[in-house]
Design a protein around this nucleic acid. Structure first.
Lengths: 216, 216
DNA sequence: AATGTATGCGCTGTATACATAAATATTAAT
DNA sequence: ATTAATATTTATGTATACAGCGCATACATT
């Protein structure tokens, strides 16, 4: 038996490689996938490849129709759709979290952001982006809702590529993050939810109004 | 080339059969799945079976861990988690729909509910349940957000089995449905969203407070 | 020239064969 | 008798082989 059961080795490798190819643009949007070619290109057989394909469809990177398997077109409309959903999902995470978060965790997240914000400009944006990722992931983790967690993960695939936290200036988003943490600390789930929803919708609006910036 | 590309024949058959087995309780919660046995039981080879398994995991019916593949335990906690997510997803659908729905569609849905509500009691609950399903699906369809649609579909798997629309008396839910339609007609997305969220959360609360009623 | 028919190729879905890792049983040793 | 070590069976992941369908090109028929 291969070491990992669910995400076995080659299946995971195939998933990652194809994901890279798509997000890097090495496979063009809308392009049709022919299994033999792709399998050979990434060096696995069609069996793990097909399994990877199913997962890539779940994560919205591929589109399976009656006509074949195609690379999804990731235009700003699509990303906007993702962010619309992210908004309510992570809003829900906040709502649930408000009752569950302990002070140390809140302090940790606050420090994480403050630190990253201070360093922003010198070290580049990576630190701030990382804090943003941790922030969002952590909330979902604490919410402890398996459905939410999985749904979040699939939308999250794009967050890595299209960094909403950096679309708008950290000067603005830092304030939004702080407000959310305040609401969480005050155990005001309703408010925290609303703030988070707005936070992400602001990013979504930005996407709609501006060209899409791939890779930071 | 087999007729259907994405959801090919045997893969889909396997998916449906396994889904039945799980939701009927023929395979017990938490039970470990051994591929050979299951494949023989439902009469397909392991290749389409494994593909079906991946999709069943996406739909939260199976759980894949390092130790194997297991039937997910569908207790009331879990269903509650599903409904928490459904609430915000379908709330979002309402918000988006408000700007898009035309009068005929609203009239259609209203008639659908009124008719089903009138017949409720005589014909049993099936008609009302069907209307409920159409209502929720239609809104998601009109919202026309691919992410929302897919996420909805995965949570929807359980709606068929655990009929929230019937958990509480149609006397109550019928009123809620009507209010939502009113809000949509008034193009008040904000209100429609809130009403839908509450509608589903009411069901979620019911689940939390009562034993789980499988299959109506 | 146009429409119908046949032949071949490409690609897919599926079954099966194989190698390896886990689990289980069996033996050996203290 | 209990543990350690080895063998045997079981189950998994992966590769490959096979069969069928669609599509295109070539050929035939009118």
């Amino acid at each position: 038996m291969a070491r990992l059961m669910g995400n076995s080795h080659l299946e995971q490798i195939a998933y990652n490689k194809i994901r890279e190819l798509i997000l890097n643009g090495d496979i063009k949007s809308g392009e049709k996938i022919v299994q033999d070619q792709l399998a050979e290109q990434i060096g696995v057989s069609r069996t793990p490849l097909r399994q990877a394909i199913i997962n890539l469809e779940r994560d919205f990177l591929l589109e399976i129709t009656g006509q074949g398997i195609f690379v999804r077109e990731i235009n700003s409309d699509f990303i906007h759709s993702v962010w619309e959903v992210r908004a309510v999902l992570e809003g829900l995470a906040c709502r649930i979290c408000a009752d569950k978060m302990d002070s140390p965790t809140i302090a940790y997240l606050r420090a994480l952001f403050d630190d990253a914000y201070l360093r922003w400009g010198e070290n580049g944006e990576d630190k701030y982006f990382e804090a943003d990722m941790i922030f969002h992931s952590k909330l979902v983790e604490i919410a402890n809702n398996p459905i939410l967690e999985k749904s979040f993960n699939t939308t999250h695939v794009f967050s890595v590529q299209f960094k909403i936290g950096l679309l708008r200036s950290p000067e603005i988003t830092h304030q939004e993050h702080a407000s959310i943490l305040d609401a969480l600390e005050a155990r005001d789930g309703e408010l925290a939810e609303q703030l988070m929803v707005n936070h992400i919708r602001n990013g979504a609006a930005y996407i709609k109004n501006n060209a899409l910036h791939s890779k930071q």
